[in-house]
Write a protein that binds this DNA or RNA. Structure first.
Lengths: 225, 225
DNA sequence: CCAAAAGTGTTCAGTATACACCCATGG
DNA sequence: CCATGGGTGTATACTGAACACTTTTGG
């Protein structure tokens, strides 16, 4: 890096912060770490950290998802870049925020010595947060809700095999409102995004439900709601 | 900054790049600068530069709009952050891209010693661009088109006073397709975003048109198209 | 009187919404 | 046989799209 031209420029440094969503126990939850050191000791924060000199910003975000949630191929999307001086009291840090979607079945939170307490916490009962992470989480939640309506990204949040009711319930949990069963099923069928696996979910003290899966697991723009 | 904690971290630095749009001569145009030094001599680029240590990223973008276009209160919106290593051959620069909207009547491009050639160039006839600015411009153009459809931001691109046809033409130029006059007028009237100024555009060898203005000049989400 | 753009309603098709009952299973 | 969720169709309101003629001015 001897030719590095910005050596004498007093810079900001770049970090990423990742809001990791999952749906579990009938709620939309976020993976949070308990901070142990000042200036935000005992506050909570989303996973994040500085971007290394030789990795892309996307890679940095993916690395943090892997380190804290144990998943390598989560759905990951850049949200917004937060760059107010003063958002991090310990220095000029500009943060590129991301959000990730992980089905609860695949998520394995990992504690580390630096973050002894990692928890999935419901979006509707957030604890006091450090930095500007409340703002980041609000932005992420809005984006997720909005994107559910015009893309198929829910495929990345639901287990590979699911029933129609499970799919509908997942929408209802995230959107925070009830949907009409018949209209929902007609719409989803018409879009042709999912296919029946020809088997049934048995042993549940009611009529067995067909099991479905998404035909494709890649983001598409489609009018869902 | 003696307590600055990241001194020994080999960082990326942060820049902004701003795609400045205007509509003039019946076309959507972008303000471009001709680069004069390697590695992109004779290529073109959008205005941009490093973020200063004591300014927010938004402020840096606004500063570049002022320096190159002579406008202080343009509509400005963050687009996306481009952070691949290698996007700038001269060092690890992460760029937060913005786009700005300015009515042609208010735009005053300014040359500098560093950028002797500044031009407004049609989106449909872009010259060879340096860095990843073609990608940034594509992203900006898509966002602008999409946002026209569900917000009122066109207020920031049209002169303060305008006729109904001028408003419609501006949509048509940006979207690249014709709209139906009667449907368009009904929709806009129904939304109640604009008001007649009670005067007419005279002297144009056809029936005089009413002159309108936007009631409010702040971004709102409304279903336009 | 001719050219040019302003201004104005109705019809139709497609989509979104509201709504209720029978079915299959486990206990 | 009872409780529980699975599964299905129709009628109505609303919204978006297509479409043509008269008016007013300047030259």
């Amino acid at each position: 890096m001897s030719t590095y031209p910005y050596k004498n420029f007093e810079h900001a440094v770049v970090a990423v912060d990742v809001v990791i969503f999952t749906v579990i126990e009938g709620e939309l939850k976020i993976l949070l770490l308990k901070l142990q050191e000042p200036p935000f000791a005992d506050k909570w924060a989303v996973p994040g950290g500085l971007v290394k000199i030789d990795e892309s910003v996307d890679e940095a975000a993916r690395r943090h998802v892997w380190e804290k949630a144990g998943v390598k191929d989560a759905y990951l999307e850049q949200l917004y870049t937060f760059g107010e001086p003063g958002r991090d009291p310990s220095g000029r840090v500009i943060s590129v925020a991301y959000y990730a979607l992980i089905p609860c079945s695949r998520l394995h939170p990992r504690t580390t010595s630096r973050y002894a307490d990692i928890q999935l916490i419901s979006c509707s009962r957030l604890p006091p947060l450090g930095y500007d992470h409340d703002q980041i989480i609000r932005t992420a939640t809005e984006r997720l809700k909005s994107k559910l309506g015009y893309t198929n990204i829910i495929y990345s949040l639901i287990p590979r095999e699911f029933t129609f009711t499970e799919l509908q319930t997942m929408y209802e949990i995230i959107l925070g409102r009830k949907l009409d069963k018949r209209n929902f099923r007609r719409k989803i069928k018409l879009l042709g995004l999912i296919k029946s696996l020809g088997k049934r979910r048995v042993g549940e003290s009611h009529r067995p439900a067909q099991v479905f899966t998404f035909k494709h697991r890649s983001p598409q723009v489609v009018e869902i709601l």
